[in-house]
Design a protein around this nucleic acid. Sequence first.
DNA 1: TACGATTGTTACTAAAAGGTTAGTAAGTTG
DNA 2: CAACTTACTAACCTTTTAGTAACAATCGTA
Lengths: 132, 132
Amino acid sequence: MSRKSGEKIWKGDCCPIRQVLDRFGDKWSILIIELLSHEGKLRFSEIAHTIGDISQKMLTVTLRSLESDGLIIRQFYPEIPPRVEYELSELGKSLVPHIQQLAAWGHTHMMTILENRKRFEEKQQKQSKTAY
Amino acid sequence: MSRKSGEKIWKGDCCPIRQVLDRFGDKWSILIIELLSHEGKLRFSEIAHTIGDISQKMLTVTLRSLESDGLIIRQFYPEIPPRVEYELSELGKSLVPHIQQLAAWGHTHMMTILENRKRFEEKQQKQSKTAY
DNA sequence: TACGATTGTTACTAAAAGGTTAGTAAGTTG
DNA sequence: CAACTTACTAACCTTTTAGTAACAATCGTA
């Protein structure tokens, strides 16, 4: 039953959901894209400061991988001291509205989720008291 | 400059993007939500089989946390052997269109991303040959 | 008695992600 | 000459995440 949707979609590397998760499921990529979409061009240290709790290493790694995938553009100015500016590419910009929709959903429903979570915990505790 | 957007948004736990990432940035949650949105009610073993490469443990853990947050509903039938059916709650259903948008974006652009990535690697290799 | 079926749990282990620290280039300032 | 700057890189370490394997519960069946 329900063979119509073709099953293979969910397996392995051809599943588009997995591709997106593999690329953007990390801790910082989407946050940086959203930040750049708000602020336009930003320097390395500006991003670091605005996010606050990202390590230099993770900022470097994340920016490099975003650049490698063509989602951001890196402008290097060989001055002393060096200056680097990052901004979204067109491809990166095309992702922004979808991220914002997701963020809006989170903004709307995250409170409910946290309440549900708390209620679930309480229910579990009650059950473990009465179960034996 | 550019103080207008209020900076604090990006820091700590109040950032809605971080909340969403914390909840859905894992490997399986979104995949299971999408699967349930396609197939409706599914049993534990049906989910396991359809996804293919998820371990029993991760399926249990992921389903439990989705249930705890009120995104899916778990129907337990105390038969022998036991039977459990999972389906999306209204809250879970409300997330589906946003996931599908993101998946559609991935479907459209992932090829470009992979090409960019390949081109970037080649460029890096050339540079490391000529840089000295 | 042992097995199979279904949905789990628990303990252990491997791998990935992320953080910390130190160091680099190269000119400017004190 | 030493300190300072920016944007890194490299080595190392810790934490988190995910996978494997074994076992639990329970009744019908062979």
